[in-house]
Amino acid sequence: MTTTSVAPPTPAAPAAATAISERKQDRDGDGQGRRSWWGFAFAGPHTIGLALFTVVPIVASLVISFNNWPLLGAHTFVGFGNYAQLLADPIFRTVILNTFLFTILYVPLNLIVSLGLAAWLTPKIRHRHIFRVLFFIPTVTPIVANVVVWRMLYQPGGAIDASVQTVFGFHAPNFLADANWAMIAVVLMSVWQGFGYNMLIFSAALDSVPENLVEASELDGAGAWTTFWRIKFPLISPSVFFATMMTLITSFQVFVQPFILTKGGPGSSTLTLVQFIYNQGFQYQQLGLASAGAWVLFIIILGITAVQFIGQKKWVHYE
């Protein structure tokens, strides 16, 4: 149910890599040991549940997207009509641009902050587990609670504005009501609440970099910076790759932050794809249009993932 947050990149992807690599050696489960029916029994409940609640809806979603499907009344097949209507809609174009803008700002910031802090929080740092917990708290807090606090901070007269007024004597921008600031405000809030997950992943990865390699590098006279990029980063690059991918995927699904901070405004400057889907589906009852929007989202995500997988050869090092 990551629908609610930009944050948690699901840690499944590395498993994907092993599964795929393993598949080459072990065609269809006939490794050592005898086959039995127990496999079906054990995997059955999960497989049926997943089929019913993920595979069926995704197929249904595609079917709906090819229909004019109001919540009430008959539906008619329209082929690619919904998609054509979306592409012709200036608001939908804005929505796509906003979603990309959010991703372009959010993903690098998230990765820099989480990687930086993970690198900083080496085992040498006293009480590092306390820092880890602190940085992780917003990630596990209900995102609605986080957003609400930030709305209070961003508000004119709120903590940020009041501080700026007290120190500098002028008003801070009206972050959430100013089209130039609203997206930045949403991104900053999202990074704050979302990077903890990646930080924990990187931190665990960095911990397992063999100490002797690091020491050898230091012996060669390399500084911490060089050591990090020459030795540590290549070793943790699989983790960075999968974290990047999952963060990208989830950032395309941003919804709660703009929904509560700005309602998509001012104007349409923070209207994102998922809010567009929600509005089309549940405010205007155009399920066909909403599903088409959802499939555009899905296709974007598939495309990005494919590009990532192709690009990974250049910088990801598997042992």
Partner: peptide, 29 residues
């Protein structure tokens, strides 16, 4: 456990992780 189609099913499991839940919300409703 060894069973027929194990890895195929597993790869399908993998694939579902790529599906954003927001895409499912409407048919799920």
């Amino acid at each position: 456990l060894r069973w027929r189609g194990r890895n195929t099913v597993f790869v399908l499991f993998l694939a579902t992780l790529m599906i954003p839940q927001d895409v499912l919300v409407i048919p799920m409703y």
